[in-house]
């Protein structure tokens, strides 16, 4: 039986942003890397939702001038993370496998990759020192979620005795949300987005994962989150991601 369709009118991308925001509960400082409009929106949304609280959530959006605390170049993100000053960071992957390994290098046998991606950059390092690594990939397909990645940019878990304070915490896709068990090195399907079935998720996932007999449906955004997202967050987002903000506004307008 498919997860029930949503009662509120909400675009798929809004649901992903709200799902991402929920995963940032309790964070003091969230950093967002380049080319990540939905994680940036999720972080902005969580910050806005927390506003009445005494201790604000800080966010550092790389590429933004208005929403960025870094003033000392790329090196500052890494130093800051090593000192434990960053609670959450986002990583994606051309491929992600069932052990939480991500591949940002390319498909095919390295170094003879047939498809090249942006490169590992600081992913491995950050994955070792940021406690809440949130994996995000909108495309949920077997070419992305593979049994074993062709190249490990950042490993999902490390052998006992390896000093590691960080690692994958959750995985958000266009179809579902998973948690990651670092000890077992496995994903657990937590919620399915409305309209999808467990079978759909299985069919689109190239690896095995744990799940409840009947996984829950990803909750709808509540009215307050949605209002903040459609108002303040979209305005804030337009500075660093004008195209994304424009296209999301168009989608939202088309709902009416």
């Amino acid at each position: 039986m498919p997860a029930p369709l949503s009662a509120v009118r909400v675009t798929p991308r809004e649901r992903l942003i709200v799902t991402i925001a929920r995963l940032l509960e309790g964070c003091r400082h969230v950093a967002v890397g380049a080319s990540s409009p939905m994680p940036a929106a999720g972080a902005m949304l969580m910050r806005a939702m927390r506003e009445p609280e005494e201790e604000p959530m800080r966010i550092s959006i790389l590429g933004s001038m208005a929403h960025n605390f870094f003033t000392n170049g790329g090196v500052e993100l890494f130093d800051c993370a090593a000192q434990g000053r960053i609670d959450a960071f986002f990583l994606g992957g051309g491929q992600i496998d069932g052990a939480g390994n991500i591949n940002l290098v390319g498909a095919g046998p390295y170094p003879h990759s047939t498809v090249r991606w942006p490169g590992s950059f600081g992913s491995s390092y950050l994955s070792f020192v940021v406690p809440r690594i949130i994996l995000f990939r909108e495309e949920h397909s077997r070419r992305v979620f593979v049994e074993k990645v062709d190249f490990i940019s950042a490993p999902g878990s490390s052998p006992p005795g390896v000093f590691r304070t960080g690692g994958p915490h959750a995985l958000v896709t266009g179809l579902a949300q998973f948690s990651f068990d670092r000890k077992a090195g496995r994903f657990r399907l937590e919620t399915i987005h409305p309209g999808q079935t467990l079978q759909d998720i299985r069919a689109a996932t190239g690896f095995d994962f744990d799940h409840a007999p009947e996984p829950a449906t990803t909750p709808d955004p509540d009215a307050r989150s949605l209002a903040l997202l459609r108002g303040r967050v979209l305005e804030e987002l337009a500075e660093a991601y004008p195209e994304f903000a424009r296209s999301l506004r168009t989608d939202i307008a088309a709902l009416a």
């Binding site: 001038m65 960025n68 870094f70 003033t71 170049g73 790329g74 090196v75 500052e76």
Partner: peptide
């Protein structure tokens, strides 16, 4: 400005 990577 703040884009210190350019200096690096």
């Amino acid at each position: 400005g703040r884009w210190r990577e350019l200096a690096i």
